[in-house]
């Protein structure tokens, strides 16, 4: 994979590792941004890894755009060969699928949807050939997901499903984006799931909602006091389907600031994962559940 570089105006360099999504492309973009950060280049102000690309923002008064481009190109060979492995975390995210709030919202925006006669979950189940919503929820929540980008809005994770490509769930985005999405909606567009960290516009299909805050600008939530945003690229997520009662109990715990997220250390190696996905995921589940 050779990186396609392009200037974004006079303050950004954009690097596209691959047009299509893969964990290989993600790891090269992560290696590139790690290398840029480690190099401590004068004039570089923002270093942003994305799914299969990355972006570096710079001050052209401090470094010439062409000089920075040459520096980045010089890092490409090493990044392509770096060991695609991580010491990371696995995070359990409780999800109340088919909740009333995303349901109310999706009904309000039905005319912007591909199939106004179905809910987002019914539509997603059908086009993925899974028959029922229950089967779809099972396919969505049974295997872990990989955080391959953080952004759009503050702290929003993009998640890539850790299964063979033919099993990956794919659902198009809404025909026209909604102007409203409930806070903490679990959504899906293309091959990515996401968690909407704040209420606002969105184009991903809506499947459910989590009670667990992932962004707290007031830094009062116990596990978000040091960092406002929970997620980092490379985190691994396991969805845990919960009932309305469990959702309400979790929300009460959040309100009283005694909610304790399940977050465990884990390791991930792309080569091991590619060799044995089921085995890798089973090990991640052991790390999560302590068994």
């Amino acid at each position: 994979m050779s990186i396609r570089f392009s200037f974004g105006g006079d303050e950004h360099i954009f690097g596209e590792v691959s047009e299509s999504m893969s964990l290989e492309a993600f790891f090269i973009s992560l290696s590139m941004t790690n290398a840029v950060r480690a190099a401590g280049i004068r004039g570089v102000t923002e270093i942003c890894p994305a799914n299969a690309s990355f972006q570096v923002k710079f001050d052209p008064d401090a470094i010439k755009p062409g000089d920075l481009l040459k520096e980045l190109q010089g890092m490409e060979a090493a990044a392509a060969q770096s060991d695609a492995s991580l010491k990371t975390r696995i995070i359990e995210i409780p999800v109340y699928y088919q909740d009333p709030w995303t349901h109310e919202t999706l009904m309000r925006f039905r005319e912007r949807h591909q199939d106004p006669s179905k809910t987002d979950l019914e539509y997603a189940a059908e086009i993925n050939g899974l028959g029922t919503v229950e089967n779809f929820i099972k396919a969505h929540s049974s295997q872990p997901w990989f955080v391959s980008m953080v952004g759009f809005v503050a702290g929003l994770p993009f998640l890539y499903q850790m299964v063979e490509r033919k099993r990956q769930l794919e659902v198009p985005k809404y025909l026209r984006p909604r102007t409203d999405t409930p806070k903490l909606t679990v959504g899906h567009g293309g091959c990515f799931s996401c968690i909407y960290s704040v209420r606002g516009a969105g184009g991903y299909q809506m499947f459910g909602v989590t009670p667990m805050p992932i962004y707290d600008p007031t830094q009062k939530v116990s596990y978000l006091q040091d960092e406002m945003c929970l997620f980092r690229p490379g985190d691994i997520v396991k969805w845990k389907p919960i009932s309305r009662d469990e959702y309400d109990a979790a929300l009460e715990a959040v309100d009283e600031n005694r909610f304790e997220p399940v977050i465990r250390p884990a390791t991930f190696s792309l080569s091991e994962f590619n060799k044995d996905m089921a085995g890798t995921n089973a090990k991640l589940m052991e790390a999560l559940n302590g068994r």
Partner: peptide, 21 residues
Amino acid sequence: QPFGAGSNPSNIVDACYPYGS
């Protein structure tokens, strides 16, 4: 359309947006 991008020809695999883009 590349894998993961979405079906509209204006879609790409979600990437960073520069200021002014």
